[in-house]
Design a protein around this nucleic acid. Structure first.
Lengths: 150, 150
DNA sequence: GTACATGCAAACCATTTGCAACAGA
DNA sequence: TCTGTTGCAAATGGTTTGCATGTAC
């Protein structure tokens, strides 16, 4: 199941790269597949620390991020700490999601719905901006922890 | 009018610094006053380029930002472009609000309304969580940059 | 007088760039 | 083959740090 989607993503990656007129390099496919497989904002640091990227020079990493961004396949997420973050622009609509962290037991849960886009557009428009994207992290208490505290 | 508020802010600055147990250095007062007077997110770069800060060494700038942040007088704004951004926690910035960053010129704008709380509660409830809080950063394009690109 | 702040220079670290060797089309 | 990509090493630029001097209290 998981393997199937990874294979599918590899094909997707190669197809999209070609569509955008980019050469299908080993490195490029590896990087772009990582975005498609993980489908969430990834920092450059996460690539640097991953064993499968050990053979790839850092400068090539950076250059490929730039290329993929220029081609519109990934998007830079402005300002997130010490490293640059990017996310894929593909799959966005079907898979865009956020997380909520339990402040008691630290469990992280995926939220499969994001229903704030309209509000965000309004908020941004009120100060003359057009929204391109957002980063949202929730925190709260999960059912089990509420139960424990009673 | 403006002068009056600037004088007032100078007094405020010195009072707050003392309250937090920080020494009232010339540099420290100058920096913190800048935050109180401008009352919006400021990048370190804006300080570096300002003539009134020419006499102050960069390392002192950075050290003072850290001190003021540790004392809770200013807050670092996560994820901006090439420079760190801070805003004062005093005045209107003490209440809950978010920011939108222009992905072109990197300007950061405060959003004075947060109208997503209800949606967030719903999203969280759907996976059995009660929301305690959230972190939200928007990015997009500001009016000026839209105009430039045309 | 003492602890903390400053200036200066060097170090640090993420990112960029120049260049020669290499690989995709 | 020809142009774009890679690895390596050096450069860049924002930020940090060590140390001797200066200043708030």
């Amino acid at each position: 199941m998981i393997k199937t989607s990874i294979v599918k993503n590899q094909i997707t990656a190669e197809t999209l790269l070609k569509e955008k007129g980019l050469r299908c390099t080993k490195a490029r496919i590896l990087i772009f597949c990582e975005f498609l497989n993980r489908n969430k904002p990834l920092s450059i640091n996460e690539f640097k620390n991953k064993k499968s990227f050990n053979d790839l020079d850092e400068s090539s990493l950076y250059r490929n991020f730039k290329k993929l961004e220029a081609a519109g396949l990934i998007r830079a997420i402005p300002g997130s700490g010490d490293f640059h973050f990017y996310e894929t622009t593909e799959l966005q609509h079907s898979h865009h999601h956020h997380h909520i962290t339990c402040s008691s037991c630290k469990k992280i849960q995926c939220l499969n719905v994001c229903s704030v886009e309209k509000q965000l557009s309004k908020m941004a428009n009120s100060v003359g901006f057009q929204v391109e994207g957002h980063r949202l992290e929730l925190y709260g208490i999960c059912q089990e922890c509420v139960a424990k505290k009673l």
